[in-house]
Amino acid sequence: MKTANKPAKAPAKAPKAAAKPKVAFFDFASCEGCQLQITNLGETLLDILGAIDVVEFREAISEKWDKDYDVVFIEGSIGDHHAEERLKKIRARAKVLIAYGACACTGGVNGMKNSFKLDEIREHVYGPDYKWFDSTPTKAVHQVVKVDYFINGCPVYAPEILEVVKHALRGLPYTVPDNPVCSECKLNENVCMYERGVACLGPWTKAGCNSWCVNNGNICYGCRGEVSNPSKAAQDVITKYNLKPELIKNKFDMYNKCKENDQKPGKGK
């Protein structure tokens, strides 16, 4: 009996509050809906709060923190010089950076700004005195600083938030699924949107949301970004259902215009 003589081990100690990772949430150009998703986590949020120590979270608490962060969550895209500098300063103080939400991960709807000439769009938004207001082409967070974890989606999908948090706590990499949304949609036995005569971006969009929108009767808008090796012959899909290629491209640009920043020479994957 090996174990009989051993003194009974004390039960594992609950981690001290001080040992919990210091976590902060920051937002840039966004609707702040992804922060809302975090606060909407309900009981899961209480579990998460048991494992982390939130030191800054504008939408939920008023405290500020002046030391380094173990983990920062960044929401929103980067659309002016000030934001770019602020993001770099946050990155310098953070051990781990998590980009969450479509704006942060792919540039999101803010990327549509890049479809226009910058000065034209500035004038349209700010009027004749637009030069007083700083503005740059929209960038996703990884196009400015190094990102350790991505939680894609508009808004972020609750089960995935939890998965990424657990991976970050364990120091393990998280891989965003790189298959089309169809791969999950089919398992949910949804009637294919194309069968209903509606163009859906599922065939080209990264899975991981459990086909959230289609489960609820909507199409996929491509908010999780394009799969890294999309089908080159989308033409077959498009012609089978009598669609125009421009329609698909325009739909895709709604969330994915900033992808072009990655494809510029020297910045490609």
Binding site: I48, K166, L169, R170, N179, S231
Partner: peptide, 28 residues
């Protein structure tokens, strides 16, 4: 032509390939 969506194998009555993944709770 293939989109690599996996529809053909998911709906196939004889395809059985699966993936395994461990998931750890927040208590780690």
């Amino acid at each position: 032509r293939c989109v690599s969506c996996g529809n053909c194998t998911n709906v196939c009555p004889t395809c059985y390939c699966f993936d395994m993944a461990d998931s750890v709770g927040l208590d780690l």
